[in-house]
Design a protein around this nucleic acid. Structure first.
Lengths: 118, 118
DNA sequence: TGTAGTATGTACTACTTAGTACACATTGTC
DNA sequence: GACAATGTGTACTAAGTAGTACATACTACA
């Protein structure tokens, strides 16, 4: 089991803690709605990452992008999955086409789409 | 539990069966590597759709687009998920932007990308 | 020195996933 | 009328998911 998720969360939490004691395992656990022992195990990679809902809560707590945290946990946000499931051929083709493209090309595309050229 | 997946599979299998007796529940089940009773229950929606691997095998068997079948089963192909997880911010933004767009716009985009304009 | 807060260890559990194994009743066919 | 093939009902299960509950051990500080 890769510990990328746990390591990342722990580092981020401890960084925030330098400035604010409220970022202890216990307090963060309580705010996201899990037992401290569970969060501890997650951070140490002893247990698989939590559910999507808890990961999103954690991302908010740590001021991180939920999609990035979900990715580290090996998941994809359910709203993205739903969007794909609604038009599977279209999105499947597009994503497979783009997965071989460099970041800057994808980024350019994102911007064009966002700027309403479509 | 919605039975969209099972209904679709059953219809498709029975259509193929008009032409070819090899498309019985038993024989298809054997070819995709499950018990006939399991496929039967799946088609009648009595059990949740099978795993991704079996769905893909079934799609091949039925000459259907695996992404469509996966979508009916409420799933997204793991290779697409992996592509998203590798660049979560980029893909998340793009997909969320596109989910509100009409089909023809998405299709145009797919074609532009495929035709190497990027 | 006691007590408040902190992290972690241990044990357990309810639910879900993804099926198998086998028996049974029906239908076609030789 | 036997035999083969078909679809389905019933019972079961191994592994994974997503945690809880409580006990223990350490640290700071008043």
């Amino acid at each position: 089991m890769s510990r990328a998720f746990g390591d990342y969360v722990r580092k981020r939490r401890e960084a925030l803690r330098e400035e604010d004691d409220a970022f202890s395992v216990r307090q963060v656990a309580q705010r996201i709605g899990v037992e401290p022992s569970f969060l501890s195990k997650v951070e140490r990679g002893e247990t698989a990452p939590p559910s999507e809902a808890k990961i999103v809560a954690l991302a908010e707590e740590l001021n991180e992008d939920p999609d990035v945290l979900l990715a580290l946990a090996g998941k994809v946000s359910s709203d993205l999955q739903e969007a794909i499931r609604k038009r599977p051929e279209l999105f499947a083709t597009l994503i497979r086409e783009m997965k071989g493209m460099p970041d800057h090309a994808v980024l350019r595309l994102v911007r064009e789409v966002r700027d309403g050229k479509w």
